[in-house]
Amino acid sequence: MFKDHAKIINAISAAGEVTGRKKLQKIIFIAKKLSFPFQEKFSFHFYGPYSEELTLRIEELCNMGYLSEVREKKAGYYQYCYSITDPGMDFLTMHELDMPALGDCLLDMNAQNARFLELVSTVLYFDALERDEVVEKIATLKSKQKYTHEEIDQAYAYIDQLKEKAKVN
C-alpha cells in the first residue's frame, strides 16, 4: 500500500513542484503510459484521463503531512501547488524505488503547460487506435480546446521524445 504512496511522493519530488491538479493527473498518467510502475486506474473525463485513486492518494499524502498543497487564487479560480515536505523526504528514504529515468521525464513534463499535457495524455489514452481515429476523437471530445493538426503532430513527437528518455537510463 505505502509503496504506491511513495511512488507519488517520489514523482512530485522529482518534478520539484507541480502546479495544478489537472497537470498532476496528466503527468502521472503519461508516466504510467511510459511504463513507469504507477498503479492508479484512469478513465476518460472532461479534461482527459483522470484517476479518482490518484486524487484520494494525494489527499491522503497531504493529510499525513508528506506533501504540501498550497491553494493560490488566480483570475477567478484557485490553483493548487504540490511539493514534498521534510516528513515526505523521510518517508521516501524508507522505500526503495528503482525508477532512474523518471526524474528526467517528469522535469520535462512539468515544464509543459497543462493544455499541451491534456492533449498528450488524450493521445496516449487512445493509443490503441489508428492515428486518424485519435485525431477524430480529439476533434470530437476536445472540440472546445481547438487543437490544431500541428499541435497533434507536436504531441506525437513529444511522446516519442519521452519514450526515448524513459528508456535511456
Results as ranks from 00 to 15, higher is better:
residue 2 F to T: 12
residue 3 K to E: 00
residue 4 D to W: 14
residue 5 H to M: 15
residue 7 K to S: 11
residue 8 I to M: 00
residue 8 I to N: 00
residue 11 A to Q: 05
residue 12 I to M: 15
residue 13 S to A: 14
residue 13 S to N: 12
residue 15 A to W: 01
residue 17 E to H: 01
residue 18 V to M: 03
residue 19 T to E: 04
residue 21 R to V: 14
residue 28 I to M: 11
residue 29 F to S: 06
residue 30 I to Q: 10
residue 31 A to E: 03
residue 31 A to M: 15
residue 32 K to S: 13
residue 33 K to V: 06
residue 35 S to N: 08
residue 37 P to R: 08
residue 39 Q to D: 12
residue 40 E to R: 05
residue 41 K to Y: 06
residue 41 K to A: 02
residue 41 K to M: 05
residue 41 K to L: 13
residue 43 S to W: 06
residue 44 F to R: 15
residue 44 F to P: 09
residue 45 H to K: 11
residue 45 H to A: 12
residue 49 P to Q: 13
residue 49 P to T: 08
residue 50 Y to S: 09
residue 50 Y to A: 05
residue 51 S to G: 04
residue 52 E to D: 14
residue 53 E to H: 15
residue 53 E to T: 02
residue 54 L to R: 07
residue 55 T to M: 06
residue 55 T to H: 09
residue 58 I to K: 00
residue 61 L to C: 02
residue 61 L to I: 03
residue 61 L to K: 00
residue 61 L to P: 01
residue 63 N to A: 13
residue 63 N to V: 15
residue 63 N to H: 02
residue 64 M to D: 14
residue 65 G to S: 10
residue 70 V to F: 02
residue 73 K to A: 08
residue 73 K to W: 13
residue 75 A to P: 01
residue 76 G to N: 09
residue 76 G to H: 07
residue 77 Y to L: 13
residue 78 Y to A: 15
residue 79 Q to P: 02
residue 82 Y to S: 12
residue 83 S to K: 03
residue 84 I to V: 15
residue 84 I to A: 09
residue 86 D to A: 12
residue 87 P to Y: 06
residue 88 G to T: 09
residue 88 G to P: 05
residue 89 M to I: 10
residue 89 M to R: 11
residue 90 D to Q: 09
residue 90 D to L: 07
residue 92 L to M: 08
residue 94 M to N: 03
residue 94 M to H: 10
residue 95 H to Y: 06
residue 97 L to Y: 00
residue 98 D to F: 02
residue 98 D to R: 11
residue 98 D to C: 14
residue 99 M to I: 14
residue 99 M to H: 10
residue 99 M to L: 06
residue 101 A to S: 03
residue 101 A to R: 15
residue 102 L to W: 00
residue 104 D to P: 01
residue 104 D to A: 12
residue 105 C to H: 02
residue 106 L to K: 09
residue 106 L to C: 01
residue 107 L to E: 05
residue 109 M to W: 01
residue 109 M to K: 07
residue 111 A to R: 13
residue 113 N to W: 14
residue 114 A to D: 15
residue 114 A to P: 13
residue 115 R to N: 09
residue 117 L to P: 10
residue 118 E to M: 08
residue 124 L to K: 05
residue 127 D to K: 12
residue 127 D to Q: 03
residue 128 A to E: 12
residue 128 A to V: 04
residue 129 L to R: 10
residue 131 R to W: 03
residue 131 R to L: 11
residue 131 R to E: 05
residue 132 D to I: 04
residue 134 V to T: 11
residue 135 V to Y: 03
residue 136 E to R: 03
residue 137 K to L: 05
residue 137 K to D: 02
residue 138 I to V: 10
residue 138 I to D: 00
residue 139 A to D: 04
residue 140 T to C: 09
residue 141 L to R: 05
residue 143 S to Y: 04
residue 144 K to A: 07
residue 144 K to G: 10
residue 147 Y to K: 13
residue 149 H to R: 11
residue 150 E to V: 10
residue 151 E to R: 01
residue 152 I to N: 04
residue 153 D to L: 10
residue 153 D to F: 02
residue 153 D to R: 05
residue 154 Q to K: 06
residue 155 A to V: 14
residue 155 A to Q: 15
residue 155 A to S: 11
residue 157 A to D: 14
residue 159 I to A: 03
residue 164 E to Q: 14
residue 165 K to H: 15
residue 165 K to E: 07
residue 167 K to G: 09
residue 169 N to I: 10
residue 169 N to Y: 04
